[in-house]
Amino acid sequence: MKKAAEATLSRGYTHFRFEQASTASGSRFVGMSSNTFGSANATVMGSTAYGTYSGTTISTPMYAPTADIGVTVIMFHANEPGAQGAFDAAEVLKKGGRV
């Protein structure tokens, strides 16, 4: 509301209304969480050590939610018919962007 009111006044209009609102949500890949575990064995023969290691890594992808919001702001001058019933930009800003 606040951004729409500011844009309306900065362009020389006094009133505005919203049309064609759309929303979408989804997710975005943000990284991996990995855990590695395993076991090791060592055998000593004389002055030499022989060893084996067996390990497994499990990785889990991590996603963050996303949201997109779009709206068309239609602007009017106070004396235009479309201004009737529309938001008064100055009044919206006076209330801190709340209606």
Rank of each mutant, 00 (worst) to 15 (best):
69 I>L: 13
99 V>H: 11
94 K>P: 06
67 A>G: 10
81 P>R: 06
79 N>S: 14
84 Q>F: 11
56 T>G: 12
6 E>F: 05
25 S>D: 15
97 G>V: 04
59 S>M: 07
4 A>Q: 00
90 A>Q: 03
93 L>K: 03
20 Q>A: 15
86 A>N: 01
27 S>D: 09
60 T>Q: 11
16 F>T: 01
89 A>E: 01
32 M>R: 14
43 T>K: 12
85 G>V: 02
13 Y>A: 00
83 A>G: 03
15 H>G: 01
81 P>E: 04
11 R>P: 08
78 A>R: 07
46 G>S: 03
42 A>R: 14
62 M>A: 13
61 P>F: 02
78 A>I: 05
61 P>C: 03
31 G>W: 07
98 R>M: 11
38 G>R: 04
77 H>I: 12
3 K>F: 12
34 S>G: 08
41 N>G: 12
12 G>P: 02
95 K>C: 06
58 I>V: 13
33 S>E: 11
13 Y>T: 00
57 T>R: 05
27 S>F: 10
51 G>R: 06
56 T>A: 10
5 A>V: 01
28 R>C: 11
2 K>E: 08
41 N>P: 08
89 A>Y: 01
69 I>T: 14
71 V>R: 03
34 S>V: 09
90 A>V: 06
98 R>K: 15
22 S>A: 13
23 T>C: 10
7 A>Y: 07
14 T>R: 06
72 T>G: 04
16 F>Q: 01
64 A>T: 10
83 A>K: 01
